[in-house]
Every structure is written in structure tokens, then in C-alpha cells.
Design a protein around this nucleic acid. Structure first.
Lengths: 185, 185
DNA sequence: TATCTTTGTGAGTGAATACTAACTAATGGT
DNA sequence: ACCATTAGTTAGTATTCACTCACAAAGATA
């Protein structure tokens, strides 16, 4: 999983082949097939590896007792963007719906990961609206779409800049913009 | 261009090969090479074809004299989402940065198209903020990122639903949500 | 009619790439 | 020490795909 991550981070997902992966690990191609029954199986494992990492990382973020829902959201996305910045492979794989379109299990897994992220945000927005820190002008699910969409857009811009722009900083600006509009103060 | 569009709409971009395309047109493979020097050349032409269509369609949308900036934005996105809904191929190609990553000219063209859309939105937000129909709480470029990102998210959800959900309706809900937050009334 | 240009074809090449067959070396339990 | 299981190797196969070669028909022009 780590070799695959590094290969993708450096040369893109198109360059992850059984051959390059085996070389990176220092094994022959058939050796990989002792452990995975197909390349898709490897990709599926990789997605699960990222999903598990993301879930446990986000769930173990410590919040101060005084933290508002907005503060929590800021912390969650800060951690998320910092991780993307460090390991661009995650983005290459998670944002690759168009590549995985041909395989049912892979595209379902990608949807699952996107949904997971959405649920974190949706729960946050819901709580915030209920305890009065967020405005109730718009439904929680719409706000969730806006937040997740805007953050993905920030990531896309970073990708298109060739990872040159500052993802953490730009993402923060966007999130703060949204929070400025929905937070009661 | 039309054959390619239909092929992609029906079977996805992975299924657009010189062979399938030649078959659809009713020509042999070498015949295609009389007109395009490579497959990437075809894809580049396709992107340009979509770009031209988008630009002229958006620029010729009629606005009532009484239309606010919000009304204009609603009309622009309505037209855009309706077009995507009718020809899913456009989305497959324009949202395929991850696939075109390997080719400089293709990925530049995709960036160009995304930038074009952003400029339409940015100009709208800018005007709206200057003439007081939009709030000035957040910078125009941040609002633009939020709007374009949220709309792309709506499109992504539609794609992941297998084009089953109602893109025009769901996109409208999201846009109205954002406008509710930024419009002065 | 003669000839040049454009547009087409059948048959094939070369490279990439996922995957396999047949065999071998290492490991660990009894 | 024996042997079953696990993990590895070399040398392939099969397929897909973009692209090319040598040649032919059709169209335009003189």
C-alpha cells in the first residue's frame, strides 16, 4: 500500500502498473499475485487503506470543550488538507471517479468515501443548526453540498496548479468564507 | 465530434477508441488519421468543440432588463445543467482532468474551460457586489470558488447516481441556497 | 483524356499491460 | 529429518490499442 501510494504521488495513477509496483517493492510481478488476485483488488485495498486512515484520523482529532461547531469543522478540514498536501496520492485515487467508472466495486468504494466525508460535515452542520451556532436559513444537506463542493474545488485548483499553490491556506480561506455566511455570532 | 460525443455519452470515455469511433462513423481506422494526426488531437478538438458551444450558448442567453445578478446566474446555470443533462459526454470529458493528466495540451485545455466558467461567475459576483445586490462580506474570488465548487459537486452526485437523479433540480436548490446567503434583499 | 490531390482501405506492427504456467526456494510444525 | 505450506522466480501468453504501410478509388483541374 505504501509503495503504491508513493508511486502514485510521484508519477500519477496512470503510472501505477503491476510492473512498476513490483519493481518498487523489489519483487517480481507474479509475487504480487500471491497476495492480490488482480490489480483492481490492489486498488480496492488502497482505497480501503485510505478510508480507514481518514476515518480514524478524523475521529481522533481532539476538540477543546469550548470549541464551536465551526471550530471543529476548521480542525477537521485543516487535518484533511494537510494530509492531502503531504500525500497527493490520496487525492489522485479518491478524486478518480472518472477512471474507476468501469469497475463497480471501485466506484462504489469511492462513493462510500465521499459519503463518509459528507456525513462528517452533515452531522456537524446539523448539530450546529440545532444548538444555534449555525443559521437555519438553508437545509443542512444543501449546506453540506456547498461545503464539500467548495473544498473539493480548492483541491482541484491545487491539483491544476501542479501542487504549487498552498492547499492548506487556500482551503482555509474558502471554509472561513462559508462559515462567515452561516455562523451566528 | 458528434460521433465521439455519442459514444462517450453511452459507454463512457474509456470506450472511446479509434476502433469504436471509426466503426460509429462507418469508416476505417486509417481514415481517421487522414483528418486527425493522433487520438489526442481528436480529444483536443472535442474539448474545443465543447468550449465553443458553451461560450456562445452562455453569451447568447437573453436577460430581462429587470434581471438581478442572481437572476442572471440562475439562468446561466440552468442552461448549463440542462445541457449537461442532455449530453452527459460533456461532463465525462470536462470533468476528466485525472485522465488527461498525462498530456499537457489536454490538461491545459481543461483548465482553460474551467477558468472560462469561473470568469463568467466571477464577473457576475463582482458586478453584483459593486451594484449592491450581493453582500460584500467575502471576496468575489472566494465566492466564485464556492459557487463553482458547489455546482460541480451537484454534477458529481448526479454522475455517481448513474445519471438517475435530477441534475437541473438539485443544482437549482444548491445555487438558490448560496444566493440566499449572499443576496441583499 | 491525362494527371494530381484527396480520401479511403486491408493488413499489419509494436508496445504496453494484466495475468498465468511451471517450477524452485524458504519456512515452520511434528 | 521429513514434508506441507507459503512465497518467490523465469519465461511466457493474450489482448488491447494507437498508429503505419502500401496501395486503390474518387474527384478536381488542365
Amino acid at each position: 500500500m505504501e509503495a503504491a501510494t508513493n508511486r502514485i504521488s510521484k508519477f500519477g495513477i496512470q503510472n501505477l502498473t503491476i510492473k512498476t509496483l513490483a519493481e518498487d517493492i523489489g519483487l517480481s510481478e507474479p509475487a504480487l499475485y500471491r497476495h492480490f488476485k488482480s490489480k483492481n483488488e490492489i486498488l480496492l485495498n488502497l482505497l480501503e487503506y485510505f478510508q480507514t486512515e481518514m476515518k480514524s484520523r478524523i475521529q481522533s482529532i481532539p476538540f477543546e470543550p469550548s470549541a464551536t461547531e465551526g471550530d471543529k469543522l476548521r480542525k477537521i478540514f485543516h487535518s484533511q488538507l494537510q494530509t492531502f498536501s503531504d500525500k497527493p496520492a490520496i487525492v489522485s485515487v479518491i478524486f478518480a471517479e472518472s477512471i474507476f467508472h468501469y469497475d463497480d466495486r471501485l466506484s462504489k468504494k469511492v462513493s462510500e468515501i465521499i459519503n463518509m466525508m459528507q456525513e462528517f460535515v452533515n452531522a456537524n452542520v446539523d448539530t450546529g443548526q440545532k444548538n444555534g451556532t449555525y443559521k437555519k436559513l438553508i437545509g443542512a444537506s444543501t449546506i453540506t453540498t456547498i461545503i464539500v463542493g467548495a473544498m473539493r474545488m480548492a483541491v482541484l485548483k491545487w491539483k491544476l496548479s501542479g501542487h504549487k499553490s498552498n492547499l492548506v491556506k487556500d482551503g482555509k480561506t474558502v471554509l472561513n468564507g462559508i462559515l462567515k455566511m452561516i455562523e451566528n455570532k
